[in-house]
């Protein structure tokens, strides 16, 4: 039996811990603004009408929605770094000793890790939605719900990698590489139609593609979203379940205190 109260208690702690990234949070916000106000704006002017129509009429909108998804992704993976910080101070052992099951712990951390990034990116998301101009509120709501699940999945992914890699330097480097690949091999920044076919193959199974297309669909940029919304939602559910399962499996079977590092 999973106690939702316990899950929430764990999540709440991770949300509170997020505030200690003050500097990083400010820098990420500046990064976001520069991506939208500089890069997005300038690149938009470079594209001819045929390109603009391939991205649903306006590359700037397409890009702004994609940037939100990259922000969501890169903020959510912070939870993996937290795990190293905690391992340094032995807090992992403490968390393994409290009356919370490993399932509740992993679920709580995934939810906390996802929710806190959702709260952080929220205002930027609203800003982008305002720029795009939302047409269908119900559609948007459905998309946001799925994006919630997407962030929980990303958090589970980061937790899984963190507890299986066990060296913070390697984790850091790996996360940098994954970040570069997972963003570029998805539809977050450019449409699939312009990719060489091997890239298309990867992009069409990349969770970031599903998340980006779903967000665009929710924001009313339907023609820019290639993946059908139901398929995108389903894929996100699979993604979330898979990494939650891996995370729980590692916590129950493999993770120990003491010689963890």
């Amino acid at each position: 039996m999973i106690s939702l109260k316990k899950v929430w208690t764990v999540a709440e702690r991770d949300i509170r811990m997020f505030l200690r990234y003050k500097f990083l949070l400010i820098m990420r916000a500046i990064w976001f603004v520069s991506q939208i106000a500089l890069f997005g704006l300038v690149v938009n002017r470079m594209f001819r009408p045929d390109v603009q129509s391939a991205v649903g009429g306006n590359y700037f909108n397409y890009y702004a929605a994609g940037i939100i998804i990259t922000m969501l992704y890169s903020t959510t993976v912070f939870i993996g770094y937290d795990i190293y910080e905690e391992a340094d101070h032995g807090v992992i052992e403490y968390l393994l000793s409290v009356p919370v099951s490993r399932k509740e712990l992993v679920l709580g951390r995934s939810i906390g890790g996802g929710l806190r990034s959702f709260l952080y990116v929220g205002p930027m998301m609203l800003f982008v939605l305002y720029l795009i101009g939302v047409s269908n509120v119900l559609q948007l709501f459905a998309a946001l719900l799925s994006l919630f699940l997407f962030t929980f999945g990303v958090a589970g992914f980061s937790i899984t990698l963190a507890v299986s890699i066990k060296s913070s330097d390697r984790f850091d480097i790996l996360m940098g590489v994954i970040d570069a690949l997972i963003v570029r091999l998805s539809t977050t920044l450019y449409p699939i139609a312009y990719m060489p076919s091997p890239y298309q193959g990867i992009a069409s199974i990349n969770p970031l593609t599903f998340a980006a297309d779903l967000f665009r669909w929710g924001a009313g940029l339907e023609s820019a979203a290639l993946v059908p919304p139901m398929l995108a939602v389903l894929s996100i559910v699979v993604f979330f379940s898979m990494f939650t399962f891996f995370g729980i499996f590692l916590h129950e079977r493999k993770l120990e205190g003491g010689g963890w590092q």
Binding site: M17, E85, E86, G90, E93
Partner: peptide, 10 residues
């Protein structure tokens, strides 16, 4: 109660 206090510094 652990031998080495398990506390995050922040």
């Amino acid at each position: 109660a652990f031998q080495e206090p398990k506390l995050l510094w922040v």
